[in-house]
């Protein structure tokens, strides 16, 4: 075989290596992108990624700062008809725990894919006093894999998911039994 033929073979092999390496890099990057976008749903007992909620009153609430409390995360929207009745129950439950278990339970409202004026109007109309804020860029709903509203997640004092409700709560008793069970679990776990 002549020198030029050997050289040509080497050139082709080099390009083939470059092509394969390029393809592998592209596939890895696409894989990373898919993993970022498609988080698996949070299961009971698992700890969802922490998030920050910028409330409509200008407060910034970090989930990391809420360790030691039972956290009720409720996803709602002003355009969601079943959220209207549920919000009344949640507000009632929030008022109850502020008196019955002061500082041990916190409710967070996350406005899912809503406009700010409509969300504010909804909160005023329903008289919601627990901290609520928008789900900016859909980041919080992505963590919890929320695709519809209302959905509610109750986390124990360690930040692990203990209860989830897809759809609206039917009564205040239903909310209280879920929160109380999470509180009891947290007390038992601490002992």
């Amino acid at each position: 075989m002549s020198e030029s033929t050997v050289k040509d073979h080497k050139t082709v092999n080099l390009w083939a290596i470059v092509a394969i390496a390029g393809l592998v890099i592209v596939l890895v990057l696409i894989g990373i992108r898919l993993l970022q976008n498609d988080a698996s749903p949070v299961m009971i007992g698992e700890q969802p990624r922490d998030f920050s909620l910028s409330t409509y009153t200008g407060e910034v609430i970090n989930m990391t700062d809420l360790r030691g409390k039972v956290v009720v995360v409720n996803f709602w929207a002003s355009w969601c008809t079943t959220c209207v009745e549920e919000s009344v129950l949640l507000e009632e439950a929030w008022q109850y725990y502020q008196t019955a278990q002061p500082g041990r339970v916190i409710f967070l409202g996350v406005a899912y894919m809503d406009t700010e004026p409509a969300s504010r109007a909804f909160l005023d109309q329903q008289g919601i006093s627990f901290p609520s804020g928008p789900d900016l860029r859909g980041e919080i709903s992505r963590i919890y894999q929320v695709n519809s509203v209302p959905e509610t997640f109750i986390l124990d004092t360690e930040g692990n998911l203990r209860h989830l409700k897809i759809g609206p709560y039917a009564s205040i008793n239903e909310i209280q039994s879920a929160v109380d069970a999470t509180l009891s679990f947290s007390i038992e776990a601490a002992q």
Binding site: S4, D8, T11, A19
Partner: peptide, 18 residues
């Protein structure tokens, strides 16, 4: 990837007459 494919194809074709 299209560009890379073209380069490989051209370099293969160039090799034939040689």
């Amino acid at each position: 990837l299209i560009l890379l494919g073209l380069i490989i194809l051209l370099s293969k074709l160039r090799r034939q007459p040689q």
